[in-house]
């Protein structure tokens, strides 16, 4: 998951700036804003912000699924993990904090 997000990050950080002097330069948007300028001055920043929040949401879901699986296989968990989960109120019969 992290590797996929990293590859996407290389697009906004590097790849889409490379055609700037050629392909993007003549393209205008938002009332004559040069696209190559706007990619670096605005779109990249907010794409980066969006990517973090999406990544956080995805990873939180993964962690939730792992927790559910851990509670399902409670007896097979190592003792220190069981202790950690109990301390946080997450047991097969209890709810997660």
């Amino acid at each position: 998951m992290t590797a996929v997000f990293f590859v996407l990050w290389t697009v906004i950080a590097v790849w889409w700036h490379i055609p700037a002097p050629h392909a993007w330069r003549g393209v205008l948007l938002f009332g004559n804003m040069p696209l190559h300028w706007y990619l670096a001055a605005f779109i990249s920043i907010w794409a980066g912000v969006l990517m973090i929040f999406v990544y956080h949401w995805v990873m939180s879901r993964v962690e939730g699924e792992l927790l559910a699986r851990a509670l399902q296989d409670w007896d097979q968990l190592p003792e220190d993990v069981k202790l950690s989960l109990r301390l946080a109120g997450a047991t097969p019969s209890g709810a997660q904090h």
Partner: peptide
């Protein structure tokens, strides 16, 4: 001009990989 924009993406997009790694 455009040659100053590495400051914009350089000083922001580092945070994205900061969140990942």
């Amino acid at each position: 001009g455009y040659d100053g924009l590495p400051y914009i993406i350089g000083w922001t997009l580092g945070y994205t990989i900061h969140a990942f790694f």
